[in-house]
Design a protein around this nucleic acid. Structure first.
Length: 575
RNA sequence: GCGGGCGUAGCUCAAUGGUAGAGCGUCAGCCUUCCAAGCUGAAUGUUGACGGUUCGAGUCCGUUCGCCCGCUCCA
């Protein structure tokens, strides 16, 4: 397996366009940032990957293996709408959470930006710099003015998701200490009742002194020009926090007004949660079970980048697996390990794929402390030597069902008839509870991109200079049939073979037929398209009814009876 | 949004302010007996768009659109 760090993303993108895998959306109008169209080969490749997921996840139930409870895994499908009632996104936290206010730092040469709520301030006790201001309290609904609140201005700042992370960053990074202007730092053993901050002993140059590390929300909001930059330490470069709406919206109905504003879903997951009761009531499913769906989702990414990796329109393949809270750990481990094995099984078996358990501190808003979260990550050429996420497996606990229960006022609890005290007749009385959810959430476009990158194999020894080493199950073209030359009765034998293969395997992918130009040129084209097998009718076929099988990866040629070609291909495709 | 780079044929690139070209690819015909062979021919451009300077603009100036890279992000 070639190291992806040596592969050129530009070359891969060029091949994708040249061979019809992926095109820039709206290309004839100059394109549109963050949107990509799939060409003939790409669309088939994407469908094959989606179908493989659907077959293995839904129809076979986690590939047909037993779950941690020793029973077959039950998954039912769903297809929910892209547009839902806007209240769905209020309940899920997306309307709030996806409007992250950002701050631009003009003291950096490139005008760096960061999330306002990720700026941690370091406040010296000996040197309190406070400004009096009026703040607006909107907590009670009607805005009320709170007079003369004091806003503390931090002496230094650092970017971290919380005070604890800020401390560990500062402890370990000497260059960061220099920017911030601290010679040493260490946590103190006591808290003095600060809930949202961490007390430290920090040396600003006059020996260790007491300081507090906490968020800078108010200071940034009212006095951004007094807050030191986390990148340069300079004062005066920070902008006010500004909201960037990461959800796309449109309007339903004939009138375009605020009342008719609706959102394009930023994830498919919520469509599953809001249909949880419907599925339970209409389908004879019992916990533990999962609901799965694939579909488009939309995010107004600030800067789409890296080909299709971060797009504004993308497709997800998500499972929400519901189980009893006591069983969530076991199911989390089960899904995490099986999903990793699945990606390996469709062609990402090399070292470019890793399973990474999240550190504490980078948990998503829905994931609880201590609950499992991990990523299946792929080393893309543009992330190498780092990795980019393909799929996230998260224990979402009962967060989502609870949110929807609160916002919708509809009971989301599940009645588990296998639990509870025993009644007089010896049967359990049943137990009501909110299930916990394990979510394996994969990016289909990212999967396609990873497969493209993995398959891309430069080979200076062959005519095309490169070939696409797709797993036969995923490959958009399954086989090609060639008459060696367009005469001597070879086309007359090749055409029926082509028809036979197409009838038998056409539902899985393309079967090619080509009799034009030299055989070498046809092989070279199939290499770039990633066709795993070529069957060539030659002069020997005329006498002994065997054909040449040309293997894409090994370039080996072997002979096979023409009436065995179908079974040979079936074996290779695993069908 | 800020900063930087770039827009000529499907691709890679030429063209001193003076008739828009080449190679590759694609297609057709001939030929070809296993890895982009050869021969003959064909199609393909409002030089991203709009405006200005000029006798004349792919080239100079302005505006605009789009793409790429960095910051941000996490399917």
């Amino acid at each position: 397996m070639a190291d992806n760090a040596t592969k050129s993303m530009d070359d891969i993108m060029a091949l994708c366009k040249r061979r019809g895998f992926i095109f820039q959306a709206s290309e004839i109008y100059g394109g549109i940032n963050g949107f990509w169209d799939y060409g003939p080969l790409g669309a088939q490749l994407k469908k094959n990957l989606r179908d493989a997921w659907w077959t293995d996840v839904v129809m076979l139930g986690a590939g047909g293996q037993m779950g941690p409870d020793g029973k077959p895994v039950e998954i039912v499908p769903l297809d929910s709408c892209i547009i839902q009632n806007p209240k769905v996104w209020e309940a899920s936290g997306h309307v709030g959470g996806f409007n992250d206010p950002m701050v631009t730092d003009k003291s950096t040469p490139d005008g760096r930006r960061f999330r306002a709520d990720h700026l941690q301030g370091i406040y010296r006790y000996s040197d309190p710099l406070k400004r009096t201001t009026d703040t607006i309290d909107t907590a009670g609904g009607e805005p009320t003015l709170k007079m003369h609140s004091e806003v503390a201005i931090p002496n230094a700042t650092v970017i971290a998701s919380g005070p604890d992370e800020a401390v560990s960053l500062l402890e370990s990074d000497k260059s960061l200490q220099k920017i911030v202007g601290i010679k040493s730092i260490g946590k103190t053993g006591y808290s003095e009742g600060y809930q949202f901050g961490v007390l430290v002993m920090a040396d600003f140059g006059k020996g260790p002194e007491k300081a507090l590390i906490t968020t800078t929300n108010l200071a940034l909001r009212f006095y951004p020009d007094l807050v030191p930059s986390p990148f340069t330490g300079k004062i005066g470069g920070l902008s006010e926090p500004r909201a960037f709406n990461l959800m796309n919206h449109t309007f339903t109905g004939a009138v375009f007004n605020e009342d008719n504003k609706v959102y394009l879903r930023p994830e498919t997951a919520q469509g599953i949660f809001i249909n949880f009761k419907n599925v339970v009531d209409s389908t004879r499913v019992a916990l533990p079970f999962g609901i799965a769906q694939t579909g488009k989702a939309f995010r107004n990414e600030v800067t789409p980048r890296n080909f299709t990796f971060r797009s504004r329109e993308f497709e997800q393949m998500e499972i929400e697996f519901f189980c009893h809270p006591d069983d969530s750990k076991a199911w989390y481990v089960f899904w995490r390990d099986w999903r990793m094995a699945w990606w390996q099984g469709i062609g990402l078996e090399g070292e470019n794929l890793i399973l990474r358990e999240h550190d504490e501190g980078e948990l998503a808003h829905y994931a609880k402390e201590g609950a499992g979260t991990s990523d299946i990550e792929y080393k893309f050429p543009f992330t190498a030597p780092g990795y980019g996420e393909l799929e996230g497996i998260a224990d979402r606990t009962d967060f989502d069902l609870k949110q929807h229960q609160e916002h919708s006022k509809k009971k989301m609890e599940y009645h588990d008839k296998t639990r509870g005290e025993l009644a007089k007749n010896g049967q359990p009385k049943g137990e009501w509870y909110l299930p916990h959810v394990i979510e394996p959430s994969a990016g289909l476009d990212r999967g396609v991109l990873a497969i493209l990158c993995e398959a891309y194999t430069p080979d200076p020894d062959r005519a095309s200079g490169v070939y696409m080493k797709f797993h036969p199950r995923i490959s958009p073209i399954k086989a090609a049939v060639f008459p060696l030359v367009k005469k001597d009765g070879m086309p007359e034998i090749a055409e029926p073979l082509f028809a036979e293969l197409r009838k038998r395997f056409g539902h899985l992918g393309t079967i090619e037929y080509d009799e034009k130009q030299s055989i070498g040129k046809r092989y070279a084209r199939m290499d770039e398209a990633g066709c795993p097998f070529c069957f060539t009718i030659d002069s020997e076929t005329l006498t002994d009814q065997t054909v040449t099988v040309r293997d894409r990866d090994t370039l080996e040629q072997s002979r096979l009876a023409i009436d065995q070609v179908g079974d040979f291909l079936a074996g290779k495709l695993g069908v």
